[in-house]
Design a protein around this nucleic acid. Sequence first.
DNA 1: GCGACAG
DNA 2: ATCTTGTCGC
Length: 229
Amino acid sequence: MTTDEWPQSVAAARAQQIKWAGKLKLQSFPVSLLRATTRVVGVDVGVDSATQQLRAAAVLVDPINAELRDMAVATATAQFPYVPGYLSYREVPVILAALAKLAVTPDILFCDGQGIAHPRQFGIACHLGLLQNCPSIGIAKSLLFGTAKSPAAKFGAHSVIEVQGNAVGMALRSREQVKPIYLSPGHKINLLDALQWTLHFCRGFKLPEPTRLADQIASRRHKKWQTVD
DNA sequence: GCGACAG
DNA sequence: ATCTTGTCGC
């Protein structure tokens, strides 16, 4: 797979998605396996308002208290347009660059976007999980594919994201009084375990800490703490 | 054919 | 994704 060239068209990307979706392993990865040494990483991408360059942030969070432990940032010019259903072909390159700068390899990756709750069951979380060969979970703020009832108002309430009768993800009330988030497994994890891992990192905000912190850093509005350049 | 459409 | 401050409420 490392010898494949990066798709340069939506048609090529589509063919790769269909092919690679077949490589995904949705297996058990219970949150009970979490240790004080488990490397939990969150990634997200933002756009530099001035240069239009993509900026990816990879953050390492404490597995127990979910606090920020380390971070890495990378920037790059987008080489693929944003096309619904093909987001990973635009964001994955710069995310991989940020991950490469991080001192550790992730044991589990939280990504901003869909996992298998995708038209071809190959959202950005699947793409990253395969390339990093590690469990991954997709955390999206809106639904791209499938249907789901609105979950109950209470924290932790969830409803299945369904596609032709199959449960591919979950709409989760990660915070009361706020619109739900849509999570789905990417690779090497199943739906129920993905839900448990996500709940473990929801600490009072809509987004679970890994993606919330990555989002904050990738979007520069937190730059007052690193603008000592 | 007409909308919908992660970030 | 991004344009954007203060303000109301749990």
